[in-house]
Simulated scan of single mutants.
Amino acid sequence: MPPNNQTNDKLPDIIKSDENVKNEDKTDDKWKCLDHIIWTNVLYFIGLLLAAIYGAYLVFTDAKILTTLFGVFLYHISLFGITAGVHRLWSHRSYKAKLPFRIILAICNSISYQNSIYEWGRDHRVHHKFTETDADPVNSLRGFFFSHCGWLMCRKHPDVKRIGGKVDLSDMLADPVVYYQKEYYMPSVVVLCFVMPTLIPWYLWSETLWNAFFVCVMLRYMAGINSTWLVNSAAHMYGYKPYDVNIAPVENISISALTLGEGYHNFHHTFPWDYSTSEWGWNINLTTFILDQLAKIGWVYDRRFVTKDMIEKRKARTGPKADKYIPHEHEY
């Protein structure tokens, strides 16, 4: 693995915990998400799920193999727009990227249809500031379903809205790629997430528009968002904690395989500025592999990473041995 070119032992200001914000105007602890359900969103996601199930049926009964492979390809590039783009580049500023690559990442992000770079980054920065509190948009203490997708089916907790408006996002809007993607987000989604994946199979290998839509749009889209959701749910519940036993996020290799390297979550929440989100380099981390290759041609630079010495010191201070931690049976 090629050497990286920058280390940093400090969190960027945008992801440091702000105790003054956290403690001011404390909201009533009796707030219940079930009292704030948005039923149109519930019906929307039920409809998406049924359409994806039908798309899976078509994969095995009618769709051409090229259509299925194209759907798999779109799944990976859409997730790459999340992992390398809005997550590691824009939310955490863990590396820098030249303009052509940033444009590509924005296109991939629009294909994924998981909110604009600006909105996704805002929620993610709040998530890191206030993980597992009422101010966390995907608070896993509310249960697996809520942190997986339920948070999108109810109104945000007042703490999320109050604190989300105070997160500094000026660095994002200073990037013209983020600014223009935010301004034209929905047209870009219509073209890149829905129209393009439907027309390409129809035009290039005579697939039906019906099959192309349900396989390459609906099934692929639901697979992509569920993989991302697993990082908020399962990766905060099922796994092991070698770096910090005092936080909920865990290491989950299966989720890393599904999400191109985002399942090393105990590491990521312990060292959120590391561009690889893992100390293991390319091991089950396709995003890191691609970023390292792009660094060779100069499209990626100033990659931030944690030194081995920092990792060992942190493990000695907050890891399992420091806390006399005994793993549960389901952990590995």
Rank of each mutant, 00 (worst) to 15 (best):
K64E: 13
D35T: 01
P2S: 13
S116K: 06
W90M: 13
I15C: 08
I77Y: 14
Y95Q: 02
F70H: 12
S91H: 07
S116W: 11
D136R: 06
I65L: 12
S116L: 03
I117P: 03
V72A: 14
A106S: 05
K30R: 15
H76F: 15
I46H: 13
A106F: 02
L141H: 13
V138D: 14
T67N: 13
F101S: 07
F146G: 09
G47V: 08
F146N: 06
R102P: 01
N139V: 02
Y75L: 12
D18S: 05
K32W: 01
R88P: 08
S147C: 04
S91T: 15
F45A: 00
I14R: 13
I14F: 11
T131G: 02
F145I: 00
L74E: 06
F60S: 12
T68F: 12
T27R: 00
D9T: 11
K32Q: 13
R122H: 01
I103F: 03
H87K: 07
K16F: 02
T83W: 06
R102S: 02
T27Q: 04
K30W: 05
T67K: 07
F130P: 03
A97V: 05
N4P: 08
L74K: 10
E119M: 12
H36E: 05
G81K: 07
I77R: 12
N115C: 08
I46Q: 06
I104N: 09
V59C: 15
P100I: 09
I104Q: 04
A84L: 04
G71H: 03
R125V: 07
R142A: 08
Y57V: 05
H92G: 07
K10R: 03
E119N: 12
R93S: 11
L48T: 14
T61S: 15
D123A: 06
T68L: 14
K129R: 15
T67D: 15
G55F: 04
F70Q: 13
P12W: 12
D35V: 00
